[in-house]
Structures are given as C-alpha cells and as structure tokens.
Computed example of a mutant assay.
Amino acid sequence: MRLLVRADASVDIGMGHRVRCQALMHVFTALGWQCQFAVDRRYHAFSAPEDCLVETEEAFWWLAATVDLVVLDHYDYNADDIAALYQHQPNLLVLDDMNDRGDFPAKWLLNPLDEHYSDSIESQLTGSQFALLRPVFTQQKTIHTLPEKLLITLGGTDPLALTLPILQALLISKFPTESIQVLLGGGAKQAEKVLSFCEENSIAVAQGLSDVTPLMAQAKMAISAAGGTLFELACMGVPTVFAQVVDNQTRSLEQHVPLDWCRSVRFDNVPEDVRQQRVELLVEEVNGRWFDIEWQKKASIMARSLVDGDGANRVAKTINSYFSVP
C-alpha cells in the first residue's frame, strides 16, 4: 500500500505540518505502507532527498491518483481545491485545525480539537486523543528530579523572531538565567543572535534536537508557540504561556486556555512595533505563575489528561483497518 502526504514547510509556513505528518507516516510505515511527501518545489530547502517535488497542481493530482491514500495537511487548500483533489483520489485524509474552509468532501477528517464538520466527510477523527505526536512521546523517560526549568521554544522556525526579545525581557525582569532552557528549531530566525546572547549570559541552549522530551520533562513551565508543540507540552504535563504567532492557532487556544493549564498572548494580529509590549505582557504572565506551585500542579494534571501521545497510532490503525477489510 502506498501513502502520499501533501505538506510544505518553510520559515513562514513553519515545520508543524511536516512534523505531525512524519509522526503519522512512522506508524503507517510500521504497518507496511510505503510513504512519501509531495512538496512544492518552491520549498525544496525544507524538503528531504526522498521527497517528490511537484511543480503544478495537475502534477500532484496525477501522483495522487497512483497511490492508495493521500494525506493533505495544507492551509492553502480551500474547499474547492480539496473537492478537486477528491475527484482524483477519494481515499483522502484531510488534516485541519481551524474548521474555516467551508464544506468539502473527504474519506477522513482529522482535527485534534473538538469540531464538527458536514456529512460530506465520511469519518471524523476529532479531539485531542487524535493529536499526532512523534513516537518519543509514547516512551516518555522518567525524570527523578523535580522540574526546575523555564523552557523557551518558539517552533521550528520562530517566524516572528520572538526568542531573543523574550530572553531580553526575562533578564530585565530579573528572572534567574540558570532556570532558563532555550530550544531552537533547525530553521529558527535570528538563531546566531540567540546563540550568542545565550553564551554571553550563561543560558542553556540547544538547537535542532530530534528528541525534545528530556528538555520538556525538566520544564517547570514553558513559553512556546501554539502549534503542534501545544499538544506535546500537554502530553508532558508542562504548564505553558503560549505566544500565538499565526492565525491558525486561534481555535486551539480558544479551547485549551479555558481549561486552565495554559495562558496565551497574541502576536500575529499586531504590528511589529507593538510586539515588544506583548513580549512584556508574556514575561509578566510567566513571572506571575513561576512561584504559583498550586496552579502548576493542577495545570499539569489537566494537561496530561488531554493528550496521551497515542494519537498517530489511533489514526493510522483506524485507516489501515479500512484497507484490510476484504
């Protein structure tokens, strides 16, 4: 059986689509499927050698018709685009977050939020139990010391370059540098400046890690972008102040912040000259929660109850069973 994943990654798009699709592909591969990404040639810098680069939508349609299953994780596809793809490959799994594209057909729909879609979709896999996490999150390592770090991770690319101003604001607020752990993605903006700042101020920093669970396990709290990392931090039970950096993170924060395991500050809807004020608000929120041990305990319990890390297995096995039926 052959699976084709349509997803792109770039500094502006981020790495989240690719990362969660890789988690799904890992399980399908274990089930005996042959899996491959289809990537727009414009984003080849963030592709892998084994990916199939496509020039046009027609070229992708042709590929889609030659495989058994297509996974679509792409915000540039509106309802009409999805319907056109469905005509070429009805065995279509659409990954969604915002539920704002209108009515479209698909065999399966996956959204880790509690959303409802039309009857045009045959099977709806919705809720945090279907969050696609990498295999390491189902094999969490036990840490025998109390978490004591503030983990700062703004995604694979840090599209708004927030890591450095957040660090600067934390130091101005007298937050202890020995309690800070920075995690940079491989394509993070201003990475060299961040690395230099961390070295000058004796701040722990890591970049491009394949397994982030040890750092998350050591985190008492986190500052994070609110993409797929939201579900990873929930799985690890880390109370978090999220920086919303793109519009498609709105729904997840609307559903998770009221559960009181996280807070959020929005950056994507303000001009660049206002972001510094938002950075200061975010740092104020962190400082206000850093010593609130009671809230941290309740928040951690709530977060862990939402995501168990087994979502990719649930999704892949559900779909695989469809093809296994005689």
Rank of each mutant, 00 (worst) to 15 (best):
T29V: 08
A30K: 05
L31P: 02
L31D: 01
G32N: 14
W33N: 00
W33C: 00
W33G: 00
W33A: 00
C35W: 03
Q36K: 08
Q36E: 07
F37Q: 08
F37R: 07
A38D: 08
V39L: 06
V39H: 04
V39P: 09
D40K: 14
D40T: 15
R41D: 11
R41P: 02
Y43K: 06
Y43H: 15
Y43T: 09
H44W: 02
H44Y: 06
A45H: 14
F46T: 06
F46I: 02
F46E: 06
S47F: 04
P49G: 10
P49N: 14
P49K: 14
E50W: 04
E50R: 05
D51K: 03
D51M: 08
D51W: 04
L53P: 01
E57Y: 13
E57W: 14
E58D: 10
E58C: 08
F60E: 03
F60H: 05
W61L: 04
W62D: 15
W62M: 13
T66K: 05
T66S: 11
V67I: 01
D68T: 01
L69Y: 02
V71M: 05
L72W: 12
L72P: 13
L72Q: 11
D73F: 10
D73A: 12
H74I: 03
H74V: 00
Y75K: 03
Y77P: 02
Y77G: 08
N78A: 07
A79Y: 07
A79H: 06
A79R: 02
D81Q: 12
D81N: 12
D81Y: 07
A83V: 04
A83P: 03
A84D: 13
Y86V: 10
Y86D: 09
Q87V: 12
Q87N: 15
Q87K: 15
Q87G: 15
H88G: 09
H88Y: 11
Q89D: 03
N91Y: 02
L92Q: 06
L92S: 05
L92R: 06
L93I: 01
L93V: 01
V94A: 01
V94T: 10
V94G: 07
L95N: 04
L95F: 08
L95A: 03
D96I: 00
D97L: 03
D97C: 09
M98F: 02
N99G: 11
R101I: 05
D103E: 14
D103H: 12
F104N: 02
P105G: 13
P105V: 10
A106D: 00
A106Y: 01
K107E: 15
K107D: 14
W108I: 12
W108A: 09
L109H: 08
L109P: 02
L110A: 09
N111G: 09
L113A: 15
L113S: 14
D114M: 12
D114L: 09
D114K: 10
H116M: 09
H116N: 08
H116W: 10
H116T: 07
Y117F: 13
Y117D: 09
Y117P: 05
S118G: 13
S120R: 15
S120Y: 10
S120V: 11
I121K: 04
